[in-house]
């Protein structure tokens, strides 16, 4: 813990985040009032708080606004193809099990084009932490309907309102077998940070949904005001209930946003299962293989 503990510099022109960000890429591309910078702060804070060496962290992302996180955080970072961050991260994690591998991506990337990878990684219980920033819309491409867009919300591809019911992310991930599931909004900075600490320490598939304001497209299309207004709106609507059943807390435009840690039940990860299961079996076959190679 002490290792990464923050150090406020003597020279006051340096922000304490600077050692953990690629300052040569600042300012970032996110719009004024977007929650992504806050979420990124929470993530780096959490890595510091968890006492993990930044050299041993790999961040993988897909495509979209959130996926640009990988480009700003100063760790081994991989900005991959749309929806494929989870299998890419699976490859990294299994090839070097010492790395804390975190996928940070958006709702469209993880649940639309990448939905299949997500549910299967949860089912296998790969030791990954997936942070899904849910802004209810495709931000980077200009505000099209996402699998999380609430019923009767407007988007660029739903000019007469959206009539597809959205996914309840925490419910989907819980039923797929994730061993740590939480939901927060960008306003729950400290709880979100603590939650990320728990998630990266969990040896299994961990999932955190962060409800985050998109001022430029979601708020504009839906007359929600500025990013600040949307954040306040989330603040007023959110309630914390750790005991809530993930199936009963869908996201919509009106009802409370139920936040909390809904699942925290560690189970052996994919690799632990493979190792313990295969160990004895392999010995038998190894002997057989040896007999093959002896002439």
């Amino acid at each position: 813990m002490a290792k990464n503990k923050s150090k406020a510099p003597k020279n006051s022109s340096q922000h304490p985040m600077e050692d953990f960000l690629r300052m040569d890429r600042m300012p970032h591309i996110w719009c004024p009032g977007c929650g992504l910078g806050t979420n990124l702060t929470a993530f780096t804070e959490a890595i510091k708080k968890a006492g993990i060496d930044f050299d041993k962290v790999a961040v993988v992302s897909g495509i979209g606004c959130t996926a640009r996180v990988a480009g700003y955080v100063k760790v081994d970072s991989y900005h991959t193809t749309h929806g494929r961050a989870i299998p890419f991260a699976t490859g990294i994690k299994l090839a070097n099990r010492d790395l804390t591998t975190v996928v940070i991506s958006g709702d469209g990337d993880l649940f639309a084009i990448g939905g299949n990878h997500l549910i299967h990684a949860a089912r296998r219980n790969i030791d990954l932490t997936v942070i899904c920033v849910n802004n209810f819309i495709y931000g980077m491409t200009g505000g099209q309907t996402a699998p999380t867009t609430p019923l009767k919300a407007y988007s660029s591809t739903a000019p007469f309102k959206n009539y597809e019911p959205p996914f309840n992310l925490v419910s989907l991930v819980t039923s797929s077998g994730a061993t740590y599931v939480a939901r927060w909004t960008s306003l729950h900075i400290r709880r979100m940070t603590d939650s990320i600490v728990e998630a990266v320490n969990n040896k299994g598939f961990s999932f955190i949904e962060i409800v985050s304001p998109c001022p430029t497209v979601f708020a504009r299309k839906n007359k929600k005001g500025s990013g600040l207004d949307l954040l306040d709106h989330f603040g007023k609507r959110s309630v914390i209930d750790h005991s809530a059943n993930p199936n009963d807390i869908p996201m919509d435009l009106e009802n409370p946003i139920v936040c909390g840690v809904f699942v925290n039940k560690p189970k052996p990860s994919f690799w632990e299962n493979v190792q313990t299961g295969i160990h004895g079996e392999v010995k038998k076959h190894r002997d057989y293989e040896k007999s093959l190679s002896q002439e």
Partner: peptide
């Protein structure tokens, strides 16, 4: 995707 990830590891 996974084999590219493994390669980078």
């Amino acid at each position: 995707a996974s084999i590219i990830g493994a390669s980078f590891a």
